[in-house]
Amino acid sequence: MSRLNALRSRFVDAPDSLGAKARARRWNWFAQSFPDLSEMSVIDLGGTASAWLRAPVRPAHVHVVNLEKPPAELPGWLRADVADACELPAAILDTKYDLVFSNAVIEHVGGHLRRQMFADSVHRLAGRHWVQTPYRYFPVEPHFLFPGFQYLPIAVRTSLLRRWPLVHTPTSDREAARTIVMEVELLSITEMRHYFPSSQIRFERLGGLVKSVIAVQAR
């Protein structure tokens, strides 16, 4: 492992990393926000089955919706389907859940109209929700671990992605790198308030700075 890759592991990926500790705090905050979670039916828009299998919390039932094919075998409390969270099939939209959960997905769906469709799905599926997204103005872009990455021109970001070793999935291909760069659009607090006007907007902080924004409807 290179020194820079070891640095990424130390700060993001390793079990004792800063990222892992932040995720643990977020799970704890999530559980405190919904004390009856163990009795709830949850739909996770854009999540993964593996994340719930590792999670320190266990709802009564979790339905994961993602564009990627799920594992073939899952425990009885966990279901996974391939679907677009912005354009869910009627069979899912017409199902009532206790809670919608989404972690760092809305910034990937593609533009304002698609984000609005995503938010509309959240509001239709359940009366309660927890929707988290990284904050646009945190100084280090969380997907690429590069200071100010989100403010740079697309061409510069593309070139950096092809060479920067701290990204999760590096690529040397220019077209692939450009696609990855253009698929991430971080949101502001104002945008989150627009998509979730009746929600409480909470802030996850690091070093006193807002690191992520969470729209919470707990009742």
Rank of each mutant, 00 (worst) to 15 (best):
R3T: 15
L4N: 10
R8P: 07
R10H: 12
V12K: 11
D13P: 02
D16A: 15
G19K: 01
G19H: 05
A20S: 13
K21S: 12
K21W: 11
A22N: 06
R25Q: 11
W27K: 01
N28L: 10
A31T: 11
A31K: 07
F34A: 02
L37M: 01
E39A: 12
M40T: 04
V42T: 04
I43N: 05
T48P: 00
R54A: 15
R54M: 12
P56I: 09
P56W: 01
V62R: 00
H63K: 03
H63T: 12
V64K: 00
K69R: 07
K69E: 10
P71W: 06
P71D: 06
A72N: 08
E73T: 10
L74W: 02
P75S: 03
P75K: 02
R79Q: 12
D84Y: 05
C86H: 00
E87M: 09
L88I: 03
V100M: 03
V100W: 04
N103L: 08
N103F: 09
A104L: 08
E107F: 07
E107C: 10
H108S: 09
H112Y: 11
L113W: 09
M117S: 14
M117F: 07
F118Y: 11
F118V: 08
S121Y: 07
R124D: 06
L125Y: 06
G127P: 02
W130T: 08
T133S: 15
R136L: 15
R136S: 05
P142C: 06
L145S: 08
L145T: 00
G148I: 06
Q150L: 04
Y151S: 14
A155Y: 15
T158E: 14
R162E: 12
R163C: 14
W164V: 08
L166R: 00
H168F: 13
P170Y: 04
S172M: 09
R178G: 07
T179C: 11
I180Q: 12
M182Y: 01
M182N: 13
E183I: 00
V184G: 02
V184L: 11
L186W: 09
L186V: 06
L186Q: 05
S188R: 10
I189D: 14
T190S: 14
H194N: 11
S199Y: 04
F203W: 12
R205Q: 14
L206C: 13
G208W: 05
G208M: 02
V210W: 00
I214S: 08
